[in-house]
Design a protein around this nucleic acid. Structure first.
Length: 623
DNA sequence: AAAAAAT
């Protein structure tokens, strides 16, 4: 489940050292999961009883167990680049939520306070630098700090705390500061400059910002710092339940893994423990991780609901709730689960807990839903990194369905010529359906292009393997459904191809955001035809906003499409969205008590110069 | 209509 370059290197090294992983794979099959005692639904979710026998590990923050070190990883067989398009296919079970290499810390699981210092915490930083050099492109955090100065920022809400300019201005604590240095973060990104003070002030937040703009750190730093300096948690002594203090939810398993990896770095040697739980992987290892103690739980909704229904996790001590890709989390597919977790279990209500919502886009309807979870929140919109310089070159080409494959082939041939040091530049191809993904992958392979695919019909092992293989450059083409559209931080993606355009312009925004990340340039090519007519207007507007050249034929489509209301961009201009509380129609609706007249103290100008406003004419465009 | 997310 480790996905970084360092892990690849580590796994590769382990692989070369010997075939030791096969034995451990054998031990992690799914069969052990079924040994769990079945708890009938009516007995599930019983409140933790104070009378229950106290488990040995009920104290706060006992030592952090040995993390998933360079574990025997089921997916490490991709090492040999072959024409086989799914390297490592059938490479063995296990994998998933960590191979059995993790269980070496078993003896310590009852450890309370006294074990804290004895347990050794695996350094999550590894030797990433070495691995990064494989791309011969040293990039530090990958963030182009020079691109920051002109990033527009807009805030609204009551008494917005002023932003900070340096990490030193805020006392996050010594251990956290050390990790910030280890991450080579020199100065905070815009979203961090604003989010951290807001969060440290205890305020709720709705934030529009790209993943890759430092968003994860923006919500992790205050959470970790808050847990470290907060009262030691007097956690109830649940029979088996654990009581995390912070919950971070995300819409895909891979994104949860990614957040977990980052959070582990930020919390290294802070005694703040981060555990991840997601579906598709055996639950037992996740249960053991939880039993060792958890302060911050990163999870996908389905698995969390499962854990809640088994009464293995209680949310009653939650102080911080963060939803990543919040607009996806609140759309039709997810909303019931999220409401269940946030409103119908034992989580403290808004105002008691602190809630932070993040997404690159925030449609108005979603903002309305989201406000149920928030209390007197601050709205923050951060423009794209490098928004003024347009780091993503967007192209739209008219391609009939029947011509798409050969057209893609042309693009890939051109790309191949630009290969970097023998490695082809990474190309991410989005398609509409899972079947379409498999079939395109197969076709690419037949035609000599090493491709793999990630979508929801593949097993979790296959998904993780595909992602690793792509990141490593061994399979430089990844065909993906929207499962990979959001939040995934894959360095070095040079080209995003919208083989099938999405129906929603926000999805398009998320997809092309997989390239041009963190201040680097990228290319996004879309195949457009009559089937995408409904997207024409929004697409053409978006491209205009980004100073991209809009083909004449697309403008004609856009003009033709009847009042594109449905697909109008939900947000505005350089931001993913703007605060829906500022829309006159909403305020007249009667919910305007704490938000008057669409202006607020200290809301603007934090980044200097930029006034954050829209002229009246522009504003009307968003009504 | 499709995708994602629990078993």
């Amino acid at each position: 489940m480790r996905t970084s370059w360092a892990d690849l290197a580590a796994n590769s090294a382990a692989e070369n050292a010997g075939p030791g992983s096969s034995a451990s794979n054998a031990g992690t099959s799914n069969t052990s999961a079924s040994a769990r005692v079945y708890v009938p639904p009516h007995l599930r979710n019983r409140p933790p009883s104070a009378e229950s026998p106290a488990p040995a590990h009920s104290g706060p923050a006992s030592g952090t167990g040995p993390g998933p070190g360079p574990t025997a990883n089921a997916g490490s067989r991709w090492a040999a680049p072959r024409n086989d398009c799914r390297p490592g296919y059938g490479g063995g079970g296990g994998g998933g939520a960590g191979g059995s290499g993790r269980t070496s810390g078993w003896g310590n699981r009852s450890g309370g306070w006294d074990n804290r210092s004895r347990e050794r915490e695996v350094n999550p930083f590894g030797d990433e630098d070495d691995a990064e050099q494989a791309f011969s492109e040293k990039e530090n955090t990958g963030i182009n700090f020079d691109a920051y100065e002109d990033i527009p920022v807009e805030t609204s809400g009551d008494n917005v705390p002023p932003p900070v300019n340096t990490f030193a201005e805020i006392d996050l604590g010594e251990a956290l500061n050390l990790n910030i240095r280890r991450c080579k973060y020199v100065k905070p990104t815009p979203v961090q400059r604003h989010t951290i003070p807001i969060s440290l002030a205890g305020r709720d937040l709705m934030a529009c910002a790209q993943t890759g703009s430092g968003k994860t750190a923006a919500f992790c730093f205050p959470i970790i710092s808050g847990i470290m300096r907060g009262q030691p948690a007097q956690r109830p002594r649940g029979y088996r339940a654990v009581y995390p203090l912070a919950l971070i939810l995300s819409p895909t398993r891979e994104l949860s893994m990614q957040i977990h990896e980052e959070a582990r770095k930020f919390s290294y040697q802070t005694q703040v423990r981060v555990v991840v739980a997601y579906g598709g992987a055996p639950i037992n290892q996740q249960l053991r991780d939880l039993e060792r103690g958890v302060d911050i739980l990163v999870a996908t909704p389905g698995r969390l609901v499962d854990l809640l229904e088994r009464a293995r996790v209680s949310l009653q001590m939650i102080r911080y709730l963060a939803l990543d890709e919040a607009d996806r989390m609140l759309d039709m597919g997810f909303e019931p689960q999220i409401r269940k977790i946030v409103e119908q279990m034992d989580m403290p209500p808004p105002g008691v807990r602190q809630t932070m919502l993040f997404s690159a886009t925030f449609p108005k309807e979603i903002q309305r839903l989201a406000s149920d979870f928030l209390s007197n929140y601050i709205f923050l919109a951060v423009g794209r990194v490098g928004s003024s310089t347009d780091l993503i070159a967007q192209r739209v080409e008219y391609v009939q369905e029947s011509d798409k494959r050969s057209h893609l082939m042309d693009l890939l041939h051109a790309q191949r010529a630009n290969g970097v040091q023998g490695k082809q530049a990474l190309t991410l191809v989005f398609v509409e359906t899972k079947k379409g993904a498999d079939s395109l992958e197969h076709w690419l392979c037949l035609n000599g292009f090493p491709a793999t695919t990630i979508h929801g019909d593949r097993t979790q092992q296959e998904r993780e393997l595909a992602l690793r293989s792509f990141k490593s450059g061994n399979t430089p083409i990844l065909v993906a459904t929207d499962v990979a559209a959001r939040g995934l931080d894959i360095p070095h993606v040079a080209h995003v191809v919208n083989f099938d355009l999405p129906n929603d312009i926000d999805d398009y925004v998320h997809r092309i955001g997989r390239t041009g990340r963190a201040g680097k340039t990228g290319l996004a090519t879309a195949f457009f035809n009559d089937n995408n007519a409904s997207l024409a207007r929004a697409l053409s507007e978006l491209m205009q906003e980004a100073n991209q050249e809009v083909p004449i034929w697309l403008s004609r489509y856009a003009a033709r499409s009847s009042y594109g209301g449905r697909n109008r961009r939900s947000g505005g201009g350089r931001f993913g969205s703007r605060d829906f509380r500022r829309e006159g129609s909403f305020n007249r609706g009667g919910g305007s008590d704490y938000y008057s007249a669409g202006n607020s103290s200290g809301g603007y100008g934090a980044s200097g110069g930029y006034a954050g406003g829209y002229g009246p004419g522009v504003t009307s465009a968003w009504d």
